[in-house]
Simulated assay, not measured.
Amino acid sequence: MTAPALTSHLAANYHPLPVVLASGEGSWMTDVAGTRYLDLLAGYSALNFGHRHPALVAAAHAQLDRLTLTSRAFDHDLLEAFANRLARLVGMDLVLPMNTGAEAVETAIKAARKWGYDVKGVAPEQATIVVADGNFHGRTTTIISFSTDDDARRGFGPYTPGFRVVPYGDAAALAEAVDETTVAVLLEPIQGEGGVIIPPADYLPAVRALCDERDVLLVLDEIQSGLGRTGTTLAADLVGVRPDLVTLGKALGGGIVPVSAVVGRHDVLGVLTAGTHGSTFGGNPLACAVGLAVVAQLETGEHQRRAAELGTHLRARLDALVADGSLVATRTAGLWAGIDLAPERGTGRALSERLLARRVLVKDTHGQTVRLAPPLTIAQDDLDWGLDQLVDALH
């Protein structure tokens, strides 16, 4: 069989919008032809502080002149400081730094299983973890084993056992799935990839109470929802819930380098000892320099407050589009929204392309839904201009 002629040497695992970007600053990006676009996606929340935030870029530049990698065979002068300040920011004990969000989730799964065997006393090889349908925790082999997204899962078996999938937002169904083998419940407090799906306000508190009652860990994936996006440091803060482990990523690297971490209780992460888990690049000096600068941005609470205030404005404008029939539904949490289109207004992809033509960058998900996640630093005038283009694109 003759191979098809190649027009590109790039593997086609994404379907990007037809724009080639060359530079960015703040909430704006410029393509190779010099056209400027308003970024209302912010790298799926990796760019919470916008493109090339001066303090984050300065921290990266300064570190590039000193030290970029030691491996974890040696300590470096920023590692403890990064762990201490990140733990303090989220109010937890220990930090295990990694690189990508999927790595952080894999790390949390390993830690939960080890805790289950060493501390809870689950029989060897029998640990189970309860997860929710509609989840998105990454695309590694283990993670897609409990995905309900056919595109992510189909064709990649055999799948990793040990997971039970229950309906998202249904605490009763979750309770029925927990038994003596259950070591953890792994959830997104808000399902970002699913379209900014927000569970009932009493859901996470009920899950927290269940986990306490059954001696089960609550692991929250805040890779998209965390670090200011929802108007709070963690989305779980909105309902007063404290997880046993939380995974962080995306915004932790400031849109400059991949940085992720699992933050949690001492008695849980403490089950991992030398040789049981690791990463050559996890917690590298450059990552820690940028991560420390990100933590410094969040320690003041300014970005969280701004996300909450602009989020109220965003919600009011989107609610008006639901009221006039332009949208079927909208869901907002801080400066984060999922908007649903009626089929007669086209698909989410089509709306994204219409907005691209109006110099606004967004991304669709699951057919009729588009996500909005502007940088937390966006000016209100820019946000309103982008929403004006959304109104125009819907009519």
Rank of each mutant, 00 (worst) to 15 (best):
V185I: 12
I256L: 15
G348I: 03
V268F: 10
V57T: 05
G255Y: 03
P16M: 08
D382K: 03
V216N: 06
Q389N: 02
G346R: 13
M29H: 01
E125D: 15
L390P: 00
G249P: 01
L356S: 00
L94G: 04
G367T: 01
D151H: 09
Y117I: 04
A184K: 09
R315E: 06
H277N: 13
L69A: 14
A329N: 11
L227W: 06
H313K: 06
G134H: 11
L64K: 09
A201M: 03
L310W: 08
A83Y: 00
L10P: 00
L318G: 04
T100S: 14
Q224Y: 15
T70A: 14
E344K: 08
I256F: 05
R242S: 09
M29N: 00
G291H: 03
P200M: 05
T100N: 14
H53I: 02
A22E: 05
T148K: 08
G43Y: 07
A201D: 12
P199F: 07
V196K: 11
A307F: 07
V246W: 04
D340H: 10
L387V: 00
T377V: 15
P4N: 07
D324N: 06
T2D: 08
A373Y: 05
P18K: 05
A261N: 05
Q224W: 13
R354C: 07
F82H: 10
P189W: 13
V131D: 02
M98W: 15
T300N: 10
A62G: 08
P205R: 04
A235N: 02
R88Q: 10
T230H: 10
L10G: 00
G43N: 10
H313W: 04
E309M: 01
N84Q: 12
S147Y: 06
V166R: 15
T128G: 13
E106M: 13
G195Y: 06
I256R: 11
L245K: 08
T35R: 15
S45W: 08
R242G: 01
V362T: 15
F49H: 14
A379R: 13
I339C: 08
R164W: 03
G91Y: 10
V185T: 06
L6W: 05
A123M: 11
L390E: 01
H313R: 13
G134D: 05
L238V: 07
T128F: 10
R154Y: 08
R315H: 12
T141M: 11
G228R: 09
G121C: 09
T128V: 12
S279M: 07
R139P: 00
E193D: 01
A184Y: 09
H266R: 13
N284V: 02
A22P: 00
G325F: 07
A235I: 04
A177H: 06
G101L: 10
P97W: 06
D392S: 05
D149R: 09
G26D: 02
G26H: 09
V130D: 01
R72G: 14
H9G: 12
A62H: 12
R345K: 14
D267T: 01
E213C: 04
G50A: 07
L361I: 13
V271R: 12
A287G: 15
G43H: 12
V130A: 11
A287C: 09
H366N: 11
H303T: 04
F146N: 06
V360M: 03
H366W: 13
P243N: 11
L89Q: 03
